[in-house]
Design a protein around this nucleic acid. Structure first.
Lengths: 229, 229
DNA sequence: CCAAAAGTGTTAGAAGTACACCCATGT
DNA sequence: ACATGGGTGTACTTCTAACACTTTTGG
């Protein structure tokens, strides 16, 4: 009795894609050139296929826009209000992804009408996508305060001041340089590469890379990153 | 093209219902007297109706088993592997609930074949329900270390030793009495009722109640509860 | 030589942890 | 009077937060 076709709904996946350009957090958003809501901005999304695992579907959708695989991606929440999509009953399982903004396939993104927009100054999005972004930001802040996920947004080699600018962007507030660097180094998650940043216009900063082994081990260890948060 | 009936799936809701009997954490589980998997144990679940918001559906399903409303309930995660339900493609949005075990409608639960079983010694559950319980416990531990949600599992008036036994059950490890009580009281979330526990066989402990006003305010404030965690 | 960003150390206060003694109650 | 569990204080250690000077580099 409960297995009626009328009770089946479309399951969609929407993806909040974060990037960092060295100055501020960005979102990869779609300027829709298709119906519904053509011409408006939305998250990247798509429908789950009948023969596809949920996580696989989410990764497929991310891949279709960025060309990337093996990306940090986490399930955020499922949105299921009856009228969230005016066209048809659709339940959306949201994911958020952290990617290195310089590594994605920019042409592919552009061909799908994807644009990197400032998180803070983003346009209004369709449906309940604004709520999704809000929640994703909240989750990112929460998570990044306790777990070392920020690195996912940076290139392989990065400096501590770069990392600090990232955290300042995430929390939209400044941190003390000395305390920040001490705290980060005390986690032992960074390895000195011996190299120095060539792009600096002043004193060149030391480039670090993640200590992958420790990173894997400590990932769920519940560090205490941003105490001021 | 994507709006095919074949791409529609059933959306179910499963609910991990936690309770605390003063000694250990319990789960409200269903001994299935219906197909599929008749005779086996499962979480309480049901299908989302086509005209029903997701959260409303989850609350309906919880209500059908416990008779309770206004329960602490939080979305856990959505499980969507293709073959998770062998009978038909079903995506399950999981919720977990914290309830005061003495307040639910025991007859109603029994009439639906609901039984409170020990979390630690629970039987194997059907489908991917064991994973759901694991994840729910993990989330409960995570959350309870930072937010004051434990109170949801206790009666309106409770003693600090009771609260401590609850936290010890959640983390399956002992805490120091003196530090625990100092830490809890320092949050200012408890109000002394002036009454004392009548059930004690030795010294009677002071009964507290939540300071609702502060509770609401501080709920998202990111306290640091169990530092030993 | 000046401006701009990187690197580093110290100190005071707060919070966390470990630990011991006294009190109230029922048997 | 004794066993059981409740209540409280103190000292030690660790973490956090605030803060200033020196170094490197390009222009």
């Amino acid at each position: 009795m409960e297995y009626l076709v009328e009770n089946r709904v479309l399951v969609a996946t929407d993806c909040i894609i974060f990037g960092f350009d060295g100055e501020e957090l960005k979102l990869l958003l779609i300027k829709r050139n298709f119906e519904p809501e053509k011409g408006k901005w939305s998250l990247m999304g798509g429908f789950l296929r009948a023969d596809e695992d949920l996580e696989v579907g989410a990764k497929r959708i991310l891949h279709e826009l960025t060309g990337l695989e093996n990306v940090y991606m986490e399930q955020l929440q499922t949105f299921g209000e009856v009228n969230r999509d005016p066209a048809e009953r659709t339940v959306s399982v949201c994911f958020f992804a952290l990617i290195n903004i310089h590594e994605h396939d920019a042409e592919l993104a552009r061909s799908r009408n994807g644009y990197w927009l400032s998180l803070k100054e983003r346009p209004k999005l369709i449906f309940d996508h604004d709520r999704m972004v809000e929640l994703a930001l909240q989750r990112l802040r929460y998570k990044a305060a306790l777990h070392p996920i920020g690195f996912e947004l940076l290139p392989e080699k990065f400096t501590i001041p770069q990392l600090q600018r990232l955290y300042e962007a995430i929390y939209d507030s400044p941190f003390d340089r000395r305390n920040f660097s001490r705290k980060i180094l005390s986690t032992k998650l960074l390895k000195d590469t011996g190299e120095k940043n060539e792009h600096g216009v002043t004193k060149k900063a030391v480039l670090y890379r993640l200590d992958q082994e420790r990173y894997q081990k400590q990932f769920n260890a519940f560090l205490h990153f941003m105490s001021d948060f």
